[in-house]
Design a protein around this nucleic acid. Structure first.
Lengths: 236, 236
DNA sequence: ATAGCCGGGTGGTGA
DNA sequence: TCACCACCCGGCTAT
């Protein structure tokens, strides 16, 4: 039985229904990062082409790509929609091309293009099936562990994820820190010297982390949005 | 000066001329495996879409992919032509989709789609340029032509990023929380009712956030007992 | 002898 | 996946 974990936000996309019709077991969860999780290591981020384009320009894309790669060994990007249409309407096509190349080369992030939800579902099914079948590739990284739940919404996953958001902290250090301190709260209240006691984290980086945590928030100076927010605060 | 080695067979494709017109130095060679070689490790195989399709069915594709990957650290596949057209005329589109997925997942082979020779040349140039720049100057040049602010180096960017890692918190709430509390540290020390004062965040979700922040870290629920490293902290 | 300094190797992060 | 860089550790020096 092939199981696919689907993020709640994808519920309305129509893809889960197609997957069900194809005979897959769909399980809805609140996934923090990806849209579809096939196994512990394999996750798919689906983006409609228009969203993809705007995420290139507002900078969200690389954030998301970074998060995806951080959290999963085998992340996959699906871009859904008509590329040619976008080529025609945008003057900044080369930026998008650049982004695609960067995703592929810097992040080693496989990108699949599909034309509609139906095809996206097909691709997801294909990937899920091939993951379950015997791995003729022999790669040790492809753990066929569909039986084991990703448990992305489990507390400790969230804790690790939060700690990973700190600069210089990846999966390894996040776990070490949590094991050492016992909770997110304690990490965020630790002093520089306490943090630096953890193997792999020195004074310099620890100091930077503490600096950012303690720093007064000073949002974009001169931003129009700021005005709104500050006035919002004023009325409080 | 950017140099590109081009296989003799590509001479007639028109791409070398476009590259020359773009200011690159084109050197023709008889390359056994790839079509374009940018550096010692980087090679590009260009395939017109019809050739790509037939190579899927006669089995040439995977042979070539294997050889490419063996010979170069960073092989890149460019598929040139109108995908939609092929989708329409072939009944075996899913085989092609499968081949694309396999290339991406099994061979870790980045695939770039271009619509014509002009665009192929653009991509080659882009890759050649970025290769020269990154290898010489280090990471300095993020070539993504987005005028915005791709760098996450600013303190407030990090603050927002960290706060966003909390469940239920997206970009908007992250900013609001930071505006309201003034620092990451204060947010991570806030009580449920304090958090819930922020517009858009209710008691229920606030409680969940606090729970995760304060929760004891239990990496393997139910298995081995976690070492009491927290007591070690106390003596400080 | 011990404490602090330096330089090479490495693991981990970030893109 | 790959490059880079802070971190770690072992050795050396000098008091």
């Amino acid at each position: 039985m092939v199981r696919v974990y689907v993020d709640e936000r994808e519920r309305t996309s129509g893809i889960p229904n197609i997957l069900k019709a194809m005979g897959l077991t769909v399980i809805f969860k609140i996934l923090s990062i990806a849209d579809y999780v096939i196994s512990e290591n394999i996750a798919i981020e689906r983006k409609r082409i228009d969203d993809f384009v705007s995420s290139v320009f507002d900078g969200r894309l690389f954030d998301q790509a970074r998060r995806l790669c951080k959290a999963y060994d085998k992340p996959i990007f699906i871009v859904e929609g008509d590329l040619n249409y976008v080529k025609r309407i945008t003057t900044k096509w080369s930026s998008i091309l650049g982004a695609l190349i960067s995703l592929a080369l810097d992040f080693n992030l496989p990108i699949i293009f599909t034309s509609d939800t139906r095809e996206t579902a097909e691709v997801i099914k294909y990937i899920a099936l091939r993951e379950q079948k015997t791995s003729k590739t022999g790669k040790k990284t492809t753990i066929i562990a569909v039986s084991k739940k990703p448990r992305l919404t489990e507390t400790h996953e969230w804790q690790e994820y939060i700690v990973q958001s700190l600069p210089y902290i990846g999966p390894k250090l996040a776990k070490r820190l949590l094991e050492y301190f016992g909770s997110v709260h304690k990490i965020f209240n630790a002093s520089v010297s306490e943090l630096a006691k953890v193997e792999g984290l020195g004074e310099k980086r620890a100091a930077e982390i503490v600096r950012i945590i303690k720093a007064q928030y000073m949002p974009h100076p001169g931003s129009k949005r700021l005005r709104k927010l500050t006035s919002f605060l004023e009325e409080k």
